[in-house]
């Protein structure tokens, strides 16, 4: 257990945790933090920028080849940061004014070849970069709602160029690499979609999960054409996060963050059990990071309100 800041701050909210090896990052209302010891200790990552005030960080994306090239990106309230040295030094990406508030960030699984990143913003829709985060341009054709809360990128993006964006009024899909968007019909009307998770085997199973603000968790098994509720009896609040096992659907394990508590399903969403309840009993869980899934013995990082990051083993 470790805190991002020197002391617990009840107003500190952790949006995302990501990392590889011993290098970890946490995006929070108190800024972007970095750990070099697997999350045991944390330090503000943006010292080199000499910021005059705290800039909240909201989203993270690591290069698929982070271990070798050290490329990491962080969405901030006011722009995009990029680092090419594992987060030691950062540069600001160039985006059209006024400064956007980033809410979600995805990186192409073929990033090494295509250099593509996409960012969801609070009021400016989708920003897209195809030069490794140097310049960001808005691509909002067909995006009828510019308040984006979540993004999901197809694991087969290099071939199918498919992305999903969760917005204030629903879901939009792009099949041309994020250059244009089309509405996805949801059976629940214009509902805010806070979180999205796409199956690692999307090319085969076309499965996508969507966590909504007040209508629970939805799943589509046909690329967004039709949807049904899962865990309706469990999720009665905002579904802030959905995490699928990297081996899904072979191992149909997934976790959901709902109203500060975590839930786990080991059968593709049919049955749900409370997860990490000893943590959520103390404080609300706001971020989960499970790079190896939820098999017994897998490492897991949880971010809690107040700035606590806990490393656990499933």
């Amino acid at each position: 257990m470790a805190y991002l800041t020197s002391q617990p701050d009840p107003n500190l909210f952790i949006y995302a945790i990501a990392g590889q090896g011993e290098t970890f990052f946490a995006a929070s209302t108190a800024g972007l933090y970095r750990s070099e010891d697997g999350g045991a200790t944390w330090a503000l990552a943006t010292e080199s920028l000499n910021l005059t005030e705290v800039v909240p960080s909201t989203a993270l994306a690591l290069s698929p080849d982070f271990a070798h090239e050290g490329a990491v990106f962080a969405g901030m309230a006011g722009g995009m940061l990029r680092s090419a040295d594992g987060g030691r030094t950062w540069l600001l990406g160039k985006a059209p004014p006024p400064p956007p508030t980033i809410t979600a960030l995805v990186i192409s699984p073929a990033f090494i070849e295509d250099g593509v990143l996409l960012a969801g913003t609070m009021e400016d829709g989708i920003l897209r970069s195809s030069d490794r985060g140097l310049r960001w341009l808005p691509w909002n054709f067909g995006l009828l709602d510019l308040s984006i809360y979540s993004l999901a990128i197809s694991p087969d993006f290099a071939a199918d160029e498919t992305l999903f964006a969760g917005a204030e009024t629903g879901i939009f899909r792009s099949t041309n690499g994020g250059r244009a968007w089309r509405e996805v019909d949801l059976p629940i009307g214009f509902e805010t979609v806070l979180s999205l998770a796409i199956s690692p085997a999307y090319r085969l199973d076309r499965t996508l999960f969507a966590g909504t603000e007040s209508q629970g968790l939805l799943v589509s098994a046909d690329g967004g054409a039709s949807w049904k509720h899962v865990g309706r009896e469990v999720f009665d609040g905002p579904v802030n996060g959905v995490l699928l096992s990297p081996e899904y659907p072979a191992r149909p394990e997934m976790a959901v963050l709902c109203s500060g508590a975590a839930w786990i399903s080991r059968d593709g969403g049919q049955g749900w059990q409370p997860f990490l309840s000893e943590l959520s009993a103390e404080n609300e869980i706001t971020a989960l990071y499970a790079p190896r899934g939820f098999a017994p013995g897998s490492p897991l990082w949880a971010g809690l309100v107040g700035g606590e990051v806990t490393r656990l083993t499933v």
Binding site: P138, L144, L146, S147, A167, E183
Partner: peptide, 13 residues
């Protein structure tokens, strides 16, 4: 205008 800030629900309707 770029990124109008009207109600997206009303716009979609």
């Amino acid at each position: 205008v770029v990124a109008g800030r009207g109600d997206p629900r009303r716009l979609r309707q």
